[in-house]
């Protein structure tokens, strides 16, 4: 009885998934192409399977950034500046996709205060961080047996009074 119910549920789920691939993100964190936000010329190598930045239970080689994190931090140190301003504190996360050529696209921003509540930083902060993130060109694709793969990456900026305290993860 239990197995039958399970199979029925899976069949219904598959039916709905098959009908909705164009409109509903399939997995948590999926970023679908949005013509209002995204560059037309950014191509994902395999739209059907975009991996995550983390590698679990797999022999895949984890992706990364050329020169490791210090190289990435240096880009922000050199290009970001904002006057110390009370109230501009919290976390700003930019999620995006790195394709199999190491190119980036489909950027999405999530901003929250120190209590993890939705919050909007001054647009000068968010726009600048987005601009710098878009300019990063050292992303190394995830690899599976020498084949380069697309993956989702994010950067979170821990911000205090408008200053970047840490870049995560």
């Amino acid at each position: 009885m239990m197995i039958k119910r399970g199979l029925l549920f899976v069949a219904i789920s598959i039916y709905f998934l098959a009908c909705s691939t164009d409109t509903i993100p399939m997995d948590v964190g999926d970023i679908l192409f949005d013509p209002k936000l995204d560059r037309e010329d950014f191509k994902v190598c395999n739209e059907k399977k975009v991996y995550q930045y983390y590698v679990r239970y797999s022999a895949d080689k984890a992706p990364g950034y050329q020169g490791e994190k210090p190289a990435l931090e240096k880009v922000f140190e050199e290009n970001y500046s904002y006057p110390k301003t009370a109230g501009q504190s919290g976390y700003l996360t930019i999620r995006f996709l790195v394709n199999c050529h190491g190119e980036t696209g489909r950027f999405r921003i999530e901003e929250m205060d120190r209590d993890y509540k939705a919050f909007q930083f001054d647009s000068k902060i968010s726009e600048k961080l987005l601009e710098i993130t878009k300019s990063l060109d050292g992303w190394i694709p995830r690899k599976k047996e020498e084949k380069d793969l697309d993956y989702y990456q994010y950067l979170t900026f821990k911000i205090r009074d408008g200053q970047i305290i840490q870049i995560l993860p």
Binding site: V28, G29, Q52, T93, E110, P169
Partner: peptide, 13 residues
């Protein structure tokens, strides 16, 4: 958990 790992912290929290 997947929200946490994928940088969607408001939903995770």
């Amino acid at each position: 958990v997947p929200f946490l790992k994928r940088g969607q912290f408001i939903a995770w929290k």
